[in-house]
Design a protein around this nucleic acid. Structure first.
Lengths: 199, 199
DNA sequence: GCTAAAAAACCGTCCAGACGGTATGTACTG
DNA sequence: CAGTACATACCGTCTGGACGGTTTTTTAGC
């Protein structure tokens, strides 16, 4: 995968740049995401950064795609085998979000996504594209109110995680998950309503 | 309360500054919140702005408090009369969020809150303080998993509103609300679990 | 009630620093 | 040698904020 014949392989530098950008955003807020800060954190000069990413937008775009791809693969892995399971996609969605441990740097990436989503309409639109594409693929299972509610709760959890809200503690999180599973078990009102997508 | 004997009462100017700052953030993004822009929108010079708010932080702080106070009063008004109703606070919380109409300028304020929350850890902490204070006040009714889930879903709805996600359409929203109410009606698993607050 | 002093409200300008981005130079690799 | 991967130095712009001046309102003395 990597090319150890190079002393400093540029892929690693790129990855480090993305990683540091993510860390900066999560820990110090969006305003801390400056080229200089990222470069310093990644132990690279600003010129070096701009060699890999032609401008700040390119860096952010790279970060965005990185995170979305990561989340996408995570959800894909969390999907149940039965393809007709109700709320199959939304459950996986929730599971991935709920499993995030903010103390693990790798998993803070999602917080980055949240930040970017709420700060820039452009990324918001791109995210919505992803969600709607997935929703379309799982239209048979994930348009029910229950599925929607699951995703909404996941988003709330996600947001709560970001700020360390009172519902992000492990115990509170466990309770919520258990509650949602109980509802699922009762099996009430899981019928897919024929609600047209989009707004 | 106000002093109408003044021709241009400064309270009105301050309110206008806050209002314009909010509008700028929501419509044009966080980066558009500059002293000059705010001053121009409010038909006040930059010096005038700095006379009322000693620095940008003071302005943002004022905005933050304004919005939190507004949300607080909205939730207070949405509270059911019966003080022992399960998830009393969380239901009001959800009701207020769900009732927000983003086309009404007044109600876009909440979007401001979201923006600030996600951009600055400091405001995140202050928001958590508010939530925890309210949670403590309503500890008897709003620590159940159901209540937590309600607030989480509200947050998700809130976020979805901001970005115009696929779950922010009126019909989808109605479905979700109805679903949540059905769960409430079944009355299952509403017992307050003795979960210690905080993290 | 009149007036002068004080305070508050407000304006326009200027400046230091930060930030994104460019241009140029250099070392390493193949 | 050519191209990649960086580093260094620098530039133009924007922004926050300081500062001094001007108008309006309030207060105080008489």
């Amino acid at each position: 995968m990597n090319r150890p014949q190079r002393k400093n392989n540029p892929d690693a530098v790129r990855a480090r740049l993305i990683e540091c950008a993510a860390r900066l955003i999560v820990d110090d807020g969006l305003s801390a995401l400056t080229l200089e800060n990222v470069a310093r954190e990644a132990a690279v000069s600003k010129g070096g950064l701009l060699h890999h990413y032609h401008g700040k937008n390119a860096l952010i775009d790279g970060l965005f795609e990185e995170v979305v791809d990561w989340f996408d693969s995570q959800v894909e892995n969390a999907l149940e085998p039965e393809e007709t399971a109700p709320a199959r996609f939304s459950k996986a969605y929730l599971r991935v979000v709920a499993a995030i441990d903010m103390s693990v740097p790798e998993e803070r990436r999602l917080a980055v996504l949240m930040l970017m989503l709420s700060s820039d309409p452009h990324y918001c639109a791109r995210w919505n594209q992803w969600v709607e594409a997935r929703l379309q693929r799982h239209a048979k299972t994930d348009l029910s109110p229950f599925a929607r509610t699951l995703r909404l709760a996941a988003d709330g959890l996600w947001l709560s995680d970001l700020g360390g809200g009172p519902d992000s503690s492990p115990s509170a999180r466990r309770e919520i998950l258990a509650f949602l599973e109980d509802i699922d078990a009762t099996g009430a009102m899981l019928a897919n309503s024929p609600h047209e997508g989009g707004q």
